[in-house]
Design a protein around this nucleic acid. Sequence first.
DNA 1: ATGCGTGTATTAGTTCGCATAATACACTTC
DNA 2: GAAGTGTATTATGCGAACTAATACACGCAT
Lengths: 132, 132
Amino acid sequence: MLPFFLELSAGTPIYEQIVEAVRRAVASGRLKEGDRFPSVRAISAELRVNPNTVQKAVAELTSLGLLEVHPGQGCYIATRSVSTVRQQREALAPLLERLVIEAAHQAVDEATLLELLRAKCRELKINLDSNS
Amino acid sequence: MLPFFLELSAGTPIYEQIVEAVRRAVASGRLKEGDRFPSVRAISAELRVNPNTVQKAVAELTSLGLLEVHPGQGCYIATRSVSTVRQQREALAPLLERLVIEAAHQAVDEATLLELLRAKCRELKINLDSNS
DNA sequence: ATGCGTGTATTAGTTCGCATAATACACTTC
DNA sequence: GAAGTGTATTATGCGAACTAATACACGCAT
């Protein structure tokens, strides 16, 4: 059993879906710093996907600083690096913009939007990466 | 001068960038219901992009319900259709999820995240689609 | 030392989406 | 009828995504 939830669907690259699933698992607490991460071949077999595709996901997760590679041994969830306030803003800005625009089109007012955000924060912590 | 702001950049499909720009313009008030929308050929010439690419954006905007086509005459910004609460939630859920996950990775606490969201709401209304 | 399990690199080939190009057609308006 | 709309068609080039089959370097346990 993989330590993260993933239901492959067309439309988005597989390696991106893997990255997203791992990010979700880490954010929700399903995966914690220092945890052992499954091998490329194990994930490949479990998902029935080409090893190269999984490798691409691992490479991206490593460059994102989410995974630490211990050569010849395996991968582990990395200790989160501290980011500056500026970096935080830059990472969140595009997501915030898309959210606000979508809310405007759906005619969702600001108060409701804020409430939805609070609800989502609670949901993520509770579900612990069960599905979505 | 196009009624929406767009700076073409690689990495994302051009037609998607156009759709995004129009959505932003409508959400910010730069474009309003009933406004005339530039012709495919005009946009094509302005952006120096193939007419087919613009056409693809127009088609998507139409299917999204953002544009109304008056055959043989032109396109206009559509009157927004009412959406149910359920539809609102479904449209916002994935964006909320990605935002919360990204915030968790950036170690941004909930209170700060809510404040950033409020700020983004204000920013969108003020800038009126100048840049971003 | 040998073998197993790690991550990683290489090369090849297929499929598919994006963008371009050049036309052509149906429609409305003046 | 001419000009300006949106739309459809066909063809081509390009690159990303995925698969496939190997091969290599490293750490670790027997």
